[in-house]
Design a protein around this nucleic acid. Structure first.
Lengths: 153, 153
DNA sequence: GTCCGTGCAAATCATTTGCACTTCT
DNA sequence: AGAAGTGCAAATGATTTGCACGGAC
């Protein structure tokens, strides 16, 4: 798989998003390297969140080792530059963080198509968690189903 | 039970729940073995969802091999007898399915404490997915954070 | 008697870690 | 210079699979 089926999901002006991300790197005290440029380019160019393996495959020149990609992504996630989408089976997908655009994804179990879901009603739920004294909240919300094409059976 | 921190979550009348589960096993054409009794007893006795390792540890006599527990749990999940809660890092927790009691969990990243979250506003989100033609919808919603005790570190 | 369930060993597979080397600032 | 980033090899750890045996129905 690894194709961008489904409809637009994480799209936008790729070069601009890369620049914005690089700016945030510097602002966070993170260093800018060719490996990281390639990584961010791959993310910015994709309309859907990518797995580490996929990022590795799509990083043309300046391609970094998978291990380095893992480490960079973790740093980027901490800095709020990249958003991680944990999947059911322990894998994760990554996408550039789009501030003020919190959303989740609808994943087809059969063909892997991913669509963006705009609504996110987790606000009240996280509020409840906060009321219990929990901090540093994050949430995982994935909707799985069969897309129209795969539903016919 | 050093691991059942947090408040009640999946409690109930344990023996009765085991019997109910066994009945469902038979109804689904699954066989009843001592290993499976022990497994269901462990789940029924716990107030929180358990990891496979924890189930293995808590299954007194009749304790089955971890592999068998994995295989049984998968069969039980298919049959709707057990509910799987996928966590961030690829692990899963399991609990007896409680029909008509859909809820999610609040998990502490540091100590693993689990609390029940009553609210589930996924209705509108799944409606959106249905509107896109998706069928057989399921969703995973887990809220992660640091519990009050762990927030001080 | 048949399958299904079980145990053991070994395989997976994404992710993580140790350590020495290189590069950014 | 000095901290941060990188690569390779090897470790991890939950989960999965192959295969032969044993028990449920």
């Amino acid at each position: 798989m690894g194709h961008d089926h489904g409809h637009d999901c994480c799209g936008g002006d790729a070069p601009a998003r890369v620049e914005q991300a690089l700016g945030r790197l510097r602002a966070s005290g993170l260093r800018v390297t060719e490996a990281r440029r390639a990584l961010l380019r791959a993310l910015a160019a994709s309309r859907v969140p990518l797995a580490v393996d996929e990022i590795h495959r799509r990083s043309g020149r300046g391609k970094a080792d998978r291990v380095t990609i893992y480490r960079s992504l973790e740093a980027f996630e901490q800095a709020g530059i990249v958003r991680r989408h944990p999947l059911e089976k322990g894998r994760s997908l990554y996408a550039l963080e789009t501030p003020g655009h919190h959303h989740h994804h609808l994943v087809c179990r059969a063909c892997g198509a991913i669509e963006r879901l705009e609504a996110c009603d987790a606000g009240p739920i996280e509020a409840g968690a906060r009321a219990k004294g929990y901090t540093r909240l994050t949430h995982v919300l994935e909707v799985h189903g069969l897309c129209p094409r795969c539903s016919h059976g």
